[in-house]
């Protein structure tokens, strides 16, 4: 198959730095404003009030978080809001030592998927852990939300500053 492989020309960083190649750049200015919608709008209202909220499906009897107006499994409308606890258990986590553009950071960020108490098994949300030694975090560890002060909450997922061990 070797004869059917084209030998692409491999450029190195220095080719750009030393001006060996010609190129064009573009810095887009694209801004967006997303509507929260019905279910997530109510979810954000709850966050502003210091409350996690799920939604119940009458067909499969699951309590769903993030809340949704229809159950994607049963394809039926969900029927009521359910106030959940702000505690839960770590389903999985990571210790991240790089930014999205691969710049190293010293103190790791600890993202986690957290199963929320009061929702159905396996119903997790992504959030951050803090006030914990990164090496002490375990799957299954019980955690609780640390809320921003009420005056600082704006109706966003970041109204929870992070989760910490119970």
């Amino acid at each position: 198959m070797k004869e059917y492989v084209y030998d692409s020309v491999y450029l190195r960083s220095k080719d750009f730095e030393e001006g060996n190649v010609l190129f064009e750049t573009w810095d887009p200015n694209a801004r967006y404003a997303w509507d929260a919608g019905v279910a997530i709008g109510r979810y954000l209202q709850g966050l502003k009030a210091g409350q996690l909220i799920g939604r119940h499906c009458p067909e499969c009897d699951r309590v769903l978080i993030p809340p949704r107006m229809f159950c994607e499994t049963c394809f039926r409308p969900t029927d009521r809001w359910v106030e959940l606890e702000d505690t839960g258990a770590i389903i999985t986590f990571s210790r991240c030592y790089v930014t999205w553009d691969m710049i190293r950071i010293t103190d790791p960020q600890i993202p986690a998927v957290i199963e929320i108490d009061g929702a159905s098994p396996g119903m997790g949300i992504m959030h951050m852990l803090s006030e914990v030694d990164p090496d002490e975090v375990q799957i299954g560890m019980r955690v609780q939300a640390v809320w921003k002060p009420a005056a600082e909450r704006i109706g966003a997922i970041t109204d929870i500053a992070y989760f910490k061990p119970l």
Binding site: S94, C96, T99, W100, Q109, M126
Partner: peptide, 12 residues
């Protein structure tokens, strides 16, 4: 709305 404000990294 529910994730990007946490400034996630794809590697996560």
């Amino acid at each position: 709305t529910t994730e990007r404000p946490l400034e996630p990294n794809l590697l996560w």
